[in-house]
């Protein structure tokens, strides 16, 4: 397969990234990951729960050879996000970091200013930075300029399952971006993922849509098929119509000669 996803110098056969929240157990999560074909998974950094030591999700994923993408969720500002990134690097010895800063508790929408500040510092510290942002094309260019490894614009608010509400902005981002575009948040159904890949997204991040499905493994498989269909359609090139209208009469006369 030549159509690989390249992120921060590593290549992947799958274009899905799995968010690991809301699963009943690490075992089901690992199985869902396998069914989805995903080779990248996100996770959060938290203070250890001194009462409960059972939340061990990493080892099954590491055994499968999954690329870990720790995130900074919980951070309310740049300072906390930078601290979370450094902790994740220290714990995992992985320099990938998904920068999430959402002070807004209702919609969990990302703060562009704090996110940008955090990314600026982390890029300089040598992290491979993946910012979660609103679908703002100019913010994407600014982040690209400071050296992020990809941009992760949202389709709609986290967990909302509203699909690609930001479609027209996503199209601009995909057209203008020189770093991979990972559509993050809001993808509620495989059809949303198909659409994202059809318009040229490099990857999609899925969490709730699989974790909260009736049959998680079946849904994971459905997303695997969705990425294949959407990507293939993008590669094939969607058909478009040429609209016709009448030219002015001097132009008609000119064209008669010009097209000989």
């Amino acid at each position: 397969m030549t159509d690989k996803l390249t992120l921060a110098g590593k290549s992947f056969d799958s274009r899905l990234i799995i968010g690991t929240g809301k699963y009943a157990s690490g075992e089901i999560l690992a199985k869902a990951c396998k069914e989805s074909g995903a080779q990248i998974a996100t996770m959060a950094v938290k203070r250890i729960d001194t009462q409960d030591h059972t939340d061990e999700i990493i080892s099954p994923l590491l055994d499968m050879g999954i690329q870990l993408m720790p995130n900074t969720s919980g951070a309310k500002n740049a300072k906390e996000a930078i601290f979370a990134a450094q902790l994740a690097r220290e714990a995992l010895e992985v320099d990938w970091i998904k920068v999430e800063v959402h002070p807004d508790v209702k919609y969990l929408l990302p703060d562009p200013i704090e996110t940008f500040k955090a990314c600026e510092v982390l890029c300089k510290e040598g992290f491979k930075v993946f910012p979660y942002i609103n679908a703002d094309p100019v913010l994407c260019k600014r982040l690209e300029d400071i050296g992020v490894s990809a941009v992760m614009p949202l389709g709609s608010p986290i967990g909302s399952a509203r699909g690609l509400d930001t479609l027209s902005m996503l199209k601009i981002i995909i057209r203008e971006s020189h770093v991979p575009v990972i559509i993050d948040a809001g993808i509620g159904a495989p059809s949303d993922a198909v659409k994202a890949f059809e318009i040229g997204a490099d990857a999609c991040m899925i969490n709730t849509a699989i974790a909260a499905a009736g049959d998680q493994l079946k849904m994971a498989r459905a997303f695997n098929l969705a990425q294949e269909a959407g990507r293939m359609a993008y590669k094939a090139g969607l058909a478009d119509k040429i609209e016709t209208s009448r030219a002015t009469s001097p132009m008609e006369a000119f064209l008669k000669e010009a097209m000989k």
Partner: peptide
């Protein structure tokens, strides 16, 4: 002293 680990989360 704060000890952190990695947990499930989008």
């Amino acid at each position: 002293v704060d000890i952190f680990n990695l947990v499930a989360g989008g």
